[in-house]
Design a protein around this nucleic acid. Structure first.
Lengths: 236, 236
DNA sequence: CAGGGTGTTTGCGATAGCTCAAAAGGCGGA
DNA sequence: TCCGCCTTTTGAGCTATCGCAAACACCCTG
């Protein structure tokens, strides 16, 4: 097991208020692992034996219905935690985590959590903050799904992805990991067909440039305008 | 300020693992207040000066868009906390809270939170658990909105309300606070018209009995069946 | 460089649910 | 008791979006 350099993670929200020597102790309990592109990190319903801190790459968390339909819960960016089932008192993972790019994560055994938060209460407070923020974001997503049309929801989704994992280009922002029409559909509650039609339209208007699992926002501001447009204030 | 009896709240999840004498200290920092039916407890966007523990009554938390559309985030039942903006690091309330019945709540100043969790780390751990559970529920709701038809979503919503705040009757379960078609629409992402049509249909099938802001599930199991029915396995 | 597989595009018809509109019912207050 | 308001019901037409189907494009592999 490789030693983890504290300086790489010390600034993360998870460790806010944790003293350097404590951080080292915390990291000693972790191991790190590499996940190749498209490999599963854990499966929905499996025993929640570990929780994770993503160091490199990108991870998709998805939830599947009994009938096989999926939604994307979120994309995890480097520096974020995932698989925190134990923090919420769940014995099993509520979603599946897949590395969408070659990824590296720190891994703690779930069993270590109670001891860790007892010794380092900041961890609990910080995690509460994180989970609370995600709850807010979920509510926003519900609000959008309830009140907005598909095109606006797709616009919001892309803007969020760009903010979280956007790579600045000379002219535009590229989403920095492979993402398909289907993925976006599963983030916005629609079908890949509808997403494809929307992106085709945007491409013709010069708002985006996209291809196989690749999206570049050529005119982010124009997409913001779309995202905020009221349902009927229509284009041609 | 009336003294709060610890025995009334000691068993709540929030206080799990808190010693009786500590609980008393925690409660000493709270005051209690009464909210008449239909009064606002706090407004979305207002300074988050307090957080709450509902003792009696029912509270609706709703989120409003810039354009005035609303969704119901959740209904708060006695024993649950709400208005935890500070736990997630928000300075303002992300939603509006309205008492839907005459209600009583314990109130702590937000400023007390950091000190409380430092002195009583269980509070943070318990709150994390609660917030985590709510996050899960949110994801489930998103999943439903993405994959189910309106009728199924309404069925799920009613079943949840019945479980959380149902009053057992001789023949059926009554939702124990005033709730309109509009409210249900805002919980499920549809319109009051559609909800009305659905409930009318169910009423004719003897599944429910309902009226002005009042719903009784006459055949909860029948509604479970509806909720789980796959999109097409249709009725007449 | 051909083949296979996955992801994307696009057309077309079907429809669930929305919107608009109007009427009716029930409840609380004067 | 009567009035007025708010909630609920119901109708009718419309449309955004889905579902299905087929063709296409790209990438990786052998």
């Amino acid at each position: 097991m490789a030693k983890v350099d504290t300086s790489l993670v010390a600034h993360l929200p998870l460790f806010a208020g944790v003293k350097p020597e404590d951080l080292e102790e915390i990291l000693r309990e972790a191991r790190s692992a590499r996940y190749p592109k498209n490999s599963a990190i854990f499966e929905q319903g499996a025993d929640a034996q570990s929780f994770f801190l993503l160091l490199h790459g990108h991870v998709r968390a998805a939830k599947t219905t009994p009938t096989g339909e999926q939604i994307v819960v979120r994309y995890v960016a480097p520096g974020e935690t995932f698989g925190l089932a134990m923090a919420i008192g769940a014995a099993r993972y509520p979603a599946t985590a897949i590395a969408v790019d070659d990824s590296v994560a720190l891994i703690w055994p779930t069993s270590a959590w109670p001891r860790l938060i007892e010794r380092f209460p900041s961890l609990a407070a910080n995690t509460l903050q994180t989970v609370g923020t995600r709850l807010q974001e979920s509510h926003t997503r519900i609000l959008e799904m309830s009140t907005q049309q598909v095109e606006q929801r797709v616009a919001h989704a892309l803007l969020r992805l760009a903010k979280q994992s956007g790579k600045k280009l000379d002219h535009g922002i590229e989403i920095d990991f492979p993402i398909s029409r289907q993925d976006i559909a599963q983030m916005t509650g629609t079908t890949l067909h509808t997403v494809s039609r929307i992106l085709s339209g945007w491409e013709q208007q010069g708002l985006v440039e996209s291809g196989r699992q690749r999206i570049i926002l050529r005119d982010p501001h124009g997409i913001v305008v779309l995202a905020e447009r009221s349902p009927d204030s229509g284009a041609a």
